[in-house]
């Protein structure tokens, strides 16, 4: 019969017994809300593009936070000028990251888009990588910041 290492067994038993021992009897920790960040990110990016494709300044402005950095109205003016220079036609994207921190959601995605020049009708093909940061204000996710290659400029 193989020799049994009794101290080793004692260690193992102590671990098992200690793990069964109850500590302080307290209520269970509050469960945090579950949120499918990537599905939310997908919806927000698609929503923004759809709003841009049928651009109405006030409708688009409603989706941009008043605290947009660095300047909300300069961003709206650039987006409006961009829309009026070329007609958005196609857009596809893939979410790489959706990072939630407090009331902010940073979505990093790579994208491809096509637009038709309003002057010549010829296609403009562009692709890039963008991080759009959304801020939760009163239950609505509004655009707070855009870094990288913006999908709203041609």
């Amino acid at each position: 019969m193989k020799k049994i290492s009794w101290p080793g067994c004692l260690v193992l038993c102590s671990v098992l017994l200690a793990s069964c021992a109850s500590g302080r009897s307290v209520p269970a920790a509050q469960q945090g809300p579950s949120l499918n960040k990537r599905a939310l990110a997908q919806q927000l990016v698609q929503r923004d593009w759809d709003l841009f494709a049928g651009f109405q300044r006030q409708d688009f402005s409603d989706r941009v936070s008043d605290e947009f950095m660095p300047d909300k109205y300069a961003f709206l003016n650039e987006t409006e000028a961009s829309f009026h220079s070329a007609t958005p036609l196609n857009f596809s994207f893939t979410i790489d990251k959706a990072l939630m921190q407090g009331q902010k959601l940073a979505v990093t995605f790579s994208w491809q888009k096509k637009a038709a020049s309003r002057s010549t009708g010829s296609l403009i093909l562009k692709e890039g990588r963008c991080t759009t940061v959304y801020q939760n204000q009163n239950g609505q996710w509004l655009i707070y910041k855009i870094q990288g290659n913006s999908i709203f400029t041609f």
Binding site: S19, S22, G23, V26, P27, A28, A29, Q30
Partner: peptide, 14 residues
């Protein structure tokens, strides 16, 4: 950052 109330976790065996 949110002033949430802290709740203690139960002890669970391995």
């Amino acid at each position: 950052g949110g002033g949430e109330k802290s709740e203690q976790n139960k002890s669970y065996p391995l």
